[in-house]
Design a protein around this nucleic acid. Structure first.
Lengths: 208, 208
DNA sequence: CTGTAGTTGACCACTTTGGTCAACAGCTTG
DNA sequence: CAAGCTGTTGACCAAAGTGGTCAACTACAG
């Protein structure tokens, strides 16, 4: 079913994928409107159902597609020998931003797909990928050198602060980007800014 | 119109308010369903429109009500002479949690109401309250003693880290609460946890 | 018994839903 | 030119859902 879809003009593929992911992540599975998707993608109603037999089929396809793209990008960008926790997170944010340039709503889509009550459509898919993700986390943390931290700091809590900072920063950035000038986000400038935060936190929590 | 509503059984008032706020904050103004609200509140369709002439009337009422409740709670709980930025934020989180016990979705409601594209229903209300909020922020930061920070740390960035940490923490807490045991959130235990994070950050960024 | 206040849910006209399908355009073959 | 093939359209469908109304019900007071 999907081979035909992949023979399409790539730009059209992207338009369809992005429109559908946006609609699903904005409204959840049930409330997402296929009418709205085709309108935003600039295609006809019939075409969508020509390539995907169902709303559910489309959803499942998107879920798999997003998951695969993300894991591939991770595989390509991560350095699994990295010992510095902060640099590890730096890489993750980089992956995120790079993906957002092509698929602006992929992360939101995956987030709501993995958490929300939408999961009637993805019972076992869910669990399979949950396992996959936890394996990646394990792999990420395996080599981290915790002896770099100052004595007495609670590393678990620092990790939380770090994650919330990264998430908070990227959320505001993407929000800002979507509002004003879409697509032309300056990845380099963002990474410079991210580095400032990482430096701040490093100096706060690493031994000097 | 609203006097009649306030004569209702208080528990019923709360049921209606919470159901409506949840629906609005979950789906936005246009997509929110009055049918779903009355179902969740356990009242009949007619009753809702007996107390509020309109969907829009209901929305406006909720917006004003939430705003007023929040400001009142702030007025009661904040200490405007506080000079410690971290303690200031501690108070804010406390207000937030206390309100969430009675109105679990009030913050989400206000957040989407103030940001989202929903604002067709609230053009001037919006601006009035934006001004109000910025006044409160100004009042908050007026007395803060920035000399407490270590030399060389970028205070603006620290403030961001602090805010993202508070938001991240309360988000996970409320998520966790909603999933497992609703309503019986242990405010004291949460504040103990918050204090741990605040202590961590204080030791990181304040002069010793 | 009457009046009043609170409450119901069947009902309305209207929109939107996911999904179908006959028809069409553009292209390569013979 | 015709025949076939692929990609594409949008009018159309039954079904569900929309915001909102209203005659009728209950329950209690005078």
């Amino acid at each position: 079913m999907t081979e035909k879809f992949f023979n399409l003009d790539e730009e059209k593929q992207a338009r369809i994928i992005n429109a559908a992911m946006k609609e699903f992540s904005d409204h959840g599975y049930a409330q997402a409107s296929t009418n709205e998707m085709v309108k935003q993608a600039g295609i006809s109603k019939g075409l969508l159902f020509h390539y995907f037999k169902n709303k559910q089929g489309l959803y499942l396809f998107l879920y798999d597609y997003a998951m695969q793209k993300m894991l591939a990008e991770m595989e390509a960008s991560m350095d699994w020998a990295e010992r510095d926790l902060f640099m590890m997170y730096r890489r993750i944010v980089e992956v995120k931003f790079r993906l957002c340039r092509v698929y602006p709503d992929m992360f939101n889509f995956l987030k709501v797909a993995n958490t929300a009550d939408t999961n009637e459509a993805t019972p076992e898919l869910q669990r399979r990928n949950e396992q996959l993700i936890s394996k990646w986390y394990e792999r990420m943390y395996r080599n981290v050198d915790y002896s770099l931290f100052k004595e007495g700091v609670d590393v678990q809590r620092v990790i939380h602060v770090l994650r919330w900072t990264m998430e908070g920063f990227s959320y505001t950035q993407l929000e800002h980007m979507k509002k004003l000038s879409l697509e032309e986000l300056d990845l380099d400038a963002m990474m410079v800014e991210i580095d400032q935060y990482l430096e701040l936190l490093k100096q706060a929590f690493y031994r000097s």
